[in-house]
């Protein structure tokens, strides 16, 4: 057994695995200080089993949480399946925060929320802004504190897909993209390491200030940043939430407070440099 712990915040995970492969791969993605031996005095929020059943090389790995099976994978796709497995645990069980499917970055103590369905260019945009000096809170999950309204970071490597891997490398030759895996259910996946600034503040919340719904439009020549009625922004955020329905009146109240204090926009763009200029100008 090579059990180990991944001490991310606000959630940690205990990984049970018979193979050293996963831990070795994760050392490329997470700071070594966050990967540790299992400590009997620590409570881990989630537990993931990553192991081969019916022991033997060449058998697929099963990723599961207790008896709840998540997915089977071969060794080559262990990292993405692990990352998705961890997201799945959190999306299924945590209702401590209102969780929205969105990227979150911070500048000057204020948080920018980028909610968007897959294909809208959210991850690429998130990666670009981080490379431009914004602090990454999350590329996937916006965690809103139900009482304070603050956004808590959940710093993890930024998941880039397909063409965006090449684009990021082209725009930022020093960007650290690791563990590129081909042929996953989402195509080619690679992980951009969070900036040092992001890791240093990985337990520091931020005040929400802007909600921007991005949409990549290749034919667009001029960027369009249009104010969005707050009621519309509210509905879109609720729709993009993992647990708005579960939280019922608490979710409504928390989301109302967030939308009330944020400026809300729709962003249609083709040229990434225009986006950087426009979003930096917001601050």
């Amino acid at each position: 057994m090579t059990d180990f712990a991944l001490n991310t915040a606000p959630f940690s995970v205990l990984v049970t695995s018979r193979s050293p492969a996963l831990r070795a791969a994760l050392t490329e993605l997470y700071p070594l200080s966050l990967l540790s031996k299992v400590d009997a005095n620590t409570i881990y929020d989630f537990s993931l089993d990553v192991r081969r059943r019916w022991a033997g090389w060449g058998r697929p790995f099963h990723v599961s949480s207790g008896q709840q099976h998540f997915r089977m994978t071969d060794k080559a796709q262990l990292v993405p399946v692990f990352e998705w497995g961890l997201n799945w645990c959190i999306a299924s069980y945590q209702h401590q925060y209102l969780a929205i499917h969105a990227a979150v970055l911070e500048h000057g103590g204020k948080a920018l929320i980028l909610p968007a369905p897959p294909g809208s260019g959210k991850s690429t945009l998130c990666a670009v802004l981080m490379q431009q000096g914004w602090r990454l809170l999350s590329d996937e999950m916006c965690l809103i504190d139900l009482s304070s309204g603050l956004i808590w970071p959940y710093v993890r490597p930024v998941s880039l897909k397909n063409q965006s891997i090449a684009l990021i490398k082209q725009w930022y030759p020093d960007a650290r993209v690791r563990q590129i895996t081909r042929g996953t259910t989402k195509g080619t996946v690679g992980y951009l390491l969070p900036s040092d600034l992001s890791w240093q503040a990985y337990q520091q919340p931020a005040q929400p200030a802007w909600v921007v719904f991005p949409q990549y439009q290749p034919e667009q020549t001029e960027l369009m940043l249009t104010p969005l009625p707050k009621a519309d922004a509210f509905m879109h955020l609720a729709y993009n939430s993992f647990n708005y329905n579960v939280l019922a009146d608490e979710g409504f109240t928390a989301l109302s407070a967030l939308v009330q204090r944020c400026a809300t926009y729709r962003l249609e763009y083709a040229d990434i440099n225009q986006v950087i200029r426009e979003l930096n100008a917001l601050c």
Binding site: L14, V38, D39, A40, N41, T42, I43, Y44, D45, F46, S47, S65, G66, Q67, Q68, Y93
Partner: peptide, 15 residues
């Protein structure tokens, strides 16, 4: 309960 017991508890309670 120590940390290990609580960790196991959480996992089992969810299951």
């Amino acid at each position: 309960a120590d940390g290990a017991r609580w960790t196991a508890f959480l996992q089992l309670a969810r299951q």
